[in-house]
Amino acid sequence: MKKPLTLVFITIISLLVLLTGCQPKGESASEPAGGEASADQKEHPLANKKIALIMQINLGTFSAQYIEGVKEQAEKFGGDVTVFTSEGDLAKMASNLDAAINQKFDGILIDHGTKEALTAGIEKAEEADIPVVVFDADVEVEGVPVLQQGDEQMAEMTLNKLAEDAGGKANIVKIWVAGFAPMERRQIAYEQFMQSNPDIKEVASFGAATANTALDTQSQMEAILKQFPNEGDITAVWAAWDEFAKGAVRALEQAGRTDIKVYGIDMSDEDLQMIQAENSPWAATAAVDPKDIGRIQVRYLYQKINGESPEDKIILDPVFVEKSKLPDHSITTEELHEYIDGWGVSDQGYTADLKELEGK
């Protein structure tokens, strides 16, 4: 009896091997096709990291392009990004940060927020050996890099251009809001500028960060235009955020006020389209490419994951964009570097290890 049973067993095993060999081979989501490259990346100690992006507010095309830059760079490093949005609610932002720590992400990126809302959570993350890198928040935790855009320089660039275009004498509307670290830095430059330019007068000031900032700004700007209906009443608008600039531009265009120019800060594809529009009042802006901000922030996070110690304060170099320097045909921010030096080409934050990782 043993021989027939053994024969049956061998026959079954042979059939199973044959059938297994005939099955179609698919591509796993975690192991993409690519043979050796995929294997190399899987074995790299910095690959396959889970990254959390904690945002105070996700609003407009600037935020969308910033997120795109974060995801693009992380994916090149073999990582995966989860975005936590907080709708401007600082308590929710702190809760999101706590959730990312509890879920044991390999690294945490923070976009805006305040030290009061974030410091305890960041310290908790550091204690749990989860590296953190912050963008545009007034956080001061030792060993935690904080990126900022060179906000005072951006304000100076746009205000100096406003003064130059107006011949040193102007009535201006300021659109600004307190409570955000980059806004506070821009306000410092604004105050210094106004002290140095006594012939430039502020005739109105307003601003609020809301769920519909651009639309709300447009409504408020329309009301101000009714208060100052005559040419010369307002020379220019200085907007400390592109969402403010968009609202102001739309209000001016609807009112037909071609006598008033707008000078803004920040840049996105939507902003660029508005600046390029025929007879647009948007004369100039200063900005760092939002995609570059995301890419650079990820690079510094991976430096920390790699055991390195980047500096605590990292300033990104802004670029000045004038309407007069742009081509007649429509372009996107992907093409902007062809006309504006320094746009979207930063290698800041790269190390030899990160370049090797990206190459795999």
Rank of each mutant, 00 (worst) to 15 (best):
Q73N: 05
G113E: 14
A209Y: 08
V83R: 05
G113Y: 04
A74L: 10
L46A: 08
M194S: 14
I110L: 07
E68T: 00
V321F: 05
R186K: 13
T114E: 06
L357Y: 02
E338A: 05
A39N: 09
G342L: 01
L272C: 03
I10D: 11
R257V: 00
V173G: 09
L272A: 03
G342Q: 07
S280G: 06
P4W: 15
L354V: 00
G78Q: 02
D216R: 14
K313E: 11
P182C: 04
V173N: 13
L53Q: 10
H44P: 08
Y339P: 10
A166W: 11
E322S: 14
T351E: 03
D292L: 09
G207Q: 01
E72H: 10
T114N: 07
I234S: 02
D271C: 13
E27Q: 14
L357T: 01
K169V: 04
E335T: 07
A120F: 13
E72D: 11
D312P: 13
I314Q: 06
G21R: 14
I305F: 13
H329C: 02
E68D: 15
V70I: 13
L225W: 05
N48R: 14
I122A: 06
E36A: 13
K304Q: 07
L215R: 10
P32I: 00
G113N: 07
E308N: 09
N230V: 08
E202I: 15
G121I: 05
I51G: 01
I172M: 03
L159Y: 09
A236V: 01
V146A: 09
I110M: 08
E253S: 04
A287Y: 02
I130V: 03
L53F: 09
A189R: 09
L118W: 12
I188L: 07
G256V: 00
E202G: 11
A214G: 11
D111C: 01
T217M: 12
A178P: 11
T217D: 13
G342S: 07
